[in-house]
Amino acid sequence: MFQLYKQLSQKGILGINKRNANYTLKYNARNKYPIVDNKLKTKQLAIEAGIPVPELYAVIEIERQIQDFDDMIKDLPSFVIKPARGSGGNGIVVISNHVRDMYQKASGDFITSDEIKYHISNILSGLYSLGGQTDNAIIEYRIQPDLIFEPISYLGVPDIRIIVFFGIPVMSMVRLPTRMSDGKANLHQGAIGAGIDIATGITLSAVWKDTIITNHPDTGYPVSDIRIPFWEKLLNLSSRCYEMTGLAYQGVDIVLDKDKGPMILELNARPGLNIQIANQAGLLTRLKLVEAHHHELESIDDKIQFAIHHFKHSTALE
């Protein structure tokens, strides 16, 4: 066990305790958390900063408004309902189609209007929010995933997670929904995580339920060696999120819409550590490098160049 401990330390693996003690608690000011914990605020700030986000259709704040739900969405062919303060992808419902009071979910199942309203009511009472406070329900644009992901995702929308430290992209992965994850892009729900080389935007190895895989379990297509489009732009967007929120250590979740291009889906002040498994690399060495040099880097371009130079996959292997 000690040997394992030592081995992991040498690899520069970041553990939860270290992430909390030395990064999130140290560099992320508590008063800035609401910016990322509340998706409405994130959206607002992003729009101000000129960062693209999925269009907001409506917000439901009180129980009474639920009655008007059918009216609100009657002109929208598809949309997403999510809790403003939800965490871990919980409480998100994707509606792809609706006829009268029958709604079709992305998975193809139908649910009734009453069921949706009950779900919204649960969101409002704080069932999915951090700490159980009352919450708002957001109705927003449903992403149409970029075609490059079609062979390697099952339903749902893949998203790209980039860990950004002082505005420098440190590590990245793409999360691919599977049948097991029910179209959701969360690793703990059974989505695939595939590491992305920061320098090139090409996917590396992939992890699915703690095991290394090469092909998508549902579609059978290889998940490695896929070049993520707009990679430079993704790096640029993620880096700008630091200026936007002021959170030094954050996870930026980006989706690629086939029409509208990259958009920031949400930000996370305590991003998970599975990204290390997906990349087969430890975060700690990279974070330390950034800690030592981030003062020297002023512009976004400098930061991205630093990342491309230092976090190239081949060097990460050492």
Partner: peptide, 23 residues
């Protein structure tokens, strides 16, 4: 203990394959 920043025991398990593979 509030400043303990080492690995949790379950993390050794969680990252174990990773450590082995990269040896």
């Amino acid at each position: 203990l509030g400043r303990y920043s080492g690995f949790r025991l379950v993390e050794l398990y969680r990252f174990k394959e990773f450590a082995r593979k990269k040896r």
